[in-house]
Design a protein around this nucleic acid. Structure first.
Lengths: 263, 263
DNA sequence: TTGCTCCTCACGTCACGTGAGGTGGC
DNA sequence: TTGCTCCTCACGTCACGTGAGGTGGC
């Protein structure tokens, strides 16, 4: 009863190009209902149109083919919806970033002022910490999870907080966009798996106000300052999250200290 | 006087990865202030930091490297700003599309109704027209320009309008996302370079309401209808822009007739 | 029968990332 | 002097697009 469609007819009906349809067949995302054994001609069923429409829409939303496959293969509606909601949330975050980027672009092109830089000796401090090798694009999510975990640990072992959240970033994190990060919360605590001694030292420090998307301006100012004075030293870069997502919902109100090691 | 920076230092200051910096050098987007002749070591100047920051922001906005180069090489601020404004406008359009796509995705997953389909004989008609080979992604912009040009021609030669704007789409436009499109406006007019006779014929027709981003649902409905009855015929697909951007600002109010050739 | 549709490689594109293998600078 | 930074290939990734060269269906 079901008349099958040629790839060309299916393409016109779904607005997916023939090349795209063949690619989706290759990767197993959308396989034709039948393939002629002798000619290799692909035959699609009318019933496959809805899947094709869903694929097209997710591709319009830049969802990777793998994740689209997960959506189509989801065992139940709840699983499916979770993947979709996650993706939409991700898009929304990206969109917020876009607004910030556009605004900061305008400031950059107009040439704007940067904050003051001072030199500071930071003392070693004991802290509850989490360490991992982190990829650049995963950093915000990882950091957020890390501080949630750290807070849970502090509560569990009954440690006493004594400073704002901070993190140490290995040079490779910036240079290869993949490197070691140590997230820490200063706290008076006894020895424990998750308790470390964060080393101190001399730093050039500036305060960044606003989203992490524009943190690079603070880095540029510090790097320039340190280079011009030839006072740079090796070691990780340190950030202190003086006002963060835990304290203010609006990214505009965030305050981050960036500390560049100096001699 | 100007101390130069190693690629690693420059990377940390700008948050561009070392690999990215080397790539930008290769394509001529951001070339180091100096390159050591014997070692090939790249040396960057502090003065190059602003360019790097601009590049980073445009990349965050998904601007292609070529266009970023155009921005940086712009001879004056006016040219530069035009490129930027164009890009932001493009992003805004894409964002609007995203909203439509999300909404239509929801409808698809919930399974929604489609409009009625009727069979109609369309008579040949004389029209002022523009024809070109058009790529899928350029189609909306091309169509908009085409109808502007057609309106200008109608006014110039004093033709009398006798029907809504329309267009014929060759199969290759859908199948290869690159094919011939004829945009036309029915008009009583004498022979002229831009006057053509648009052929008539039998069509299965449905009306699509809303953005072009969801036009594929009308195509799917028509294709299914035609396939199930085995009445499909060759030839271009025809669209009539009954209510378009000239009549309504809100895409929700647009009405497009989609005409699929039948026997 | 003609030509149009469809097929399968193989390679290109874009903006890098991922190693491999080797050399130079502090 | 050691090892860390930097170098250059060469190839991989992602989602297709672009031909080339050939066969099958109406």
């Amino acid at each position: 009863m079901a008349r099958l469609l040629s790839i060309g007819e299916f393409s016109r009906m779904t607005h997916l190009s023939v090349k795209a349809l063949r690619h989706y067949d290759d990767v197993g995302l959308l396989q034709p209902a039948a393939v002629d054994a002798s000619s290799g001609y692909r035959r699609y069923a009318v019933a496959q149109v809805p899947s094709a429409q869903v694929i097209r829409r997710f591709r319009d939303l830049d969802m990777p083919l793998d994740r689209i496959k997960d959506v189509l293969d989801a065992p139940d509606a709840a699983t499916r919806d979770r993947i979709i909601v996650d993706h939409l949330a991700e898009m929304e975050r990206k969109l917020d970033q876009t607004q910030v980027t556009v605004a900061s672009l305008r400031m950059l092109l107009e040439g704007s002022a940067t904050g003051a830089i001072d030199h500071r000796s930071i003392a070693p401090v004991r802290a509850v910490a989490v360490r991992a090798r982190v990829k650049w694009d995963d950093a915000e999510a990882w950091l957020s999870d890390a501080f949630d975990a750290i807070r849970a640990t502090i509560a569990r072992i009954g440690a006493e907080r004594c400073g704002p959240d901070g993190a140490l970033y290995a040079p490779a994190f910036f240079e290869a966009h993949d490197g070691d990060v140590l997230a820490f919360a200063p706290a008076r605590a006894v020895a424990h798996d998750d308790v470390v001694d964060v080393p101190g030292g001399m730093y050039a420090v500036t305060v960044h106000e606003g989203s992490f998307a524009t943190l690079d301006t603070a880095y540029a100012a510090l790097g320039t300052h340190v280079t011009e004075r030839a006072i740079g030293a090796d070691g990780p870069i340190r950030e202190h999250y003086v006002v963060s997502g835990y304290d203010a919902d609006d990214e505009h109100d965030w305050r981050t200290e960036v500390c560049w090691p100096i001699r």
